[in-house]
């Protein structure tokens, strides 16, 4: 049962990975990566139960923290890049 759930989560991650490859915008990719991160947290938790070692939950918590901080940092970076050069859109000139 738990093994089936782990496989299901892996399928979800694979589908999200397809979106990460396809893009088209950078935001789509980060969205997919964030989704994979959330699923990784669940996968670690399920795997902890599967292998009978609930200590894995601590790793899941840490992963959730790092995933969140990482996504926010990447987004800050993008927003700053988008803001830094004055937007010169030809149609608005």
């Amino acid at each position: 049962m738990l093994a089936a759930a782990a496989v299901g989560i892996l399928v979800v991650m694979a589908l999200a990975l397809v979106r990460a490859f396809r893009g088209p915008s950078i935001c789509d990719r980060i969205l997919a990566v964030n989704m994979i991160g959330t699923k990784t947290v669940l996968l670690i938790a399920v795997y902890g139960f599967l292998s009978g070692r609930p200590d894995f939950l601590d790793i899941a918590i840490t992963y959730a923290l790092i995933n969140f901080v990482g996504v926010i940092a990447a987004l800050k970076f993008i927003e700053r890049i988008a803001a830094s050069p004055p937007p010169t859109r030809p149609e608005e000139l």
Partner: peptide, 23 residues
């Protein structure tokens, strides 16, 4: 873990939407 996900996922979604609008 659930509580943490429920707190962070809207923040991440909102930041994504904002960054997308700005980009």
């Amino acid at each position: 873990i659930l509580l943490f996900l429920l707190y962070t996922s809207p923040v991440a979604s909102h930041a994504l939407a904002r960054a997308a609008v700005h980009a």
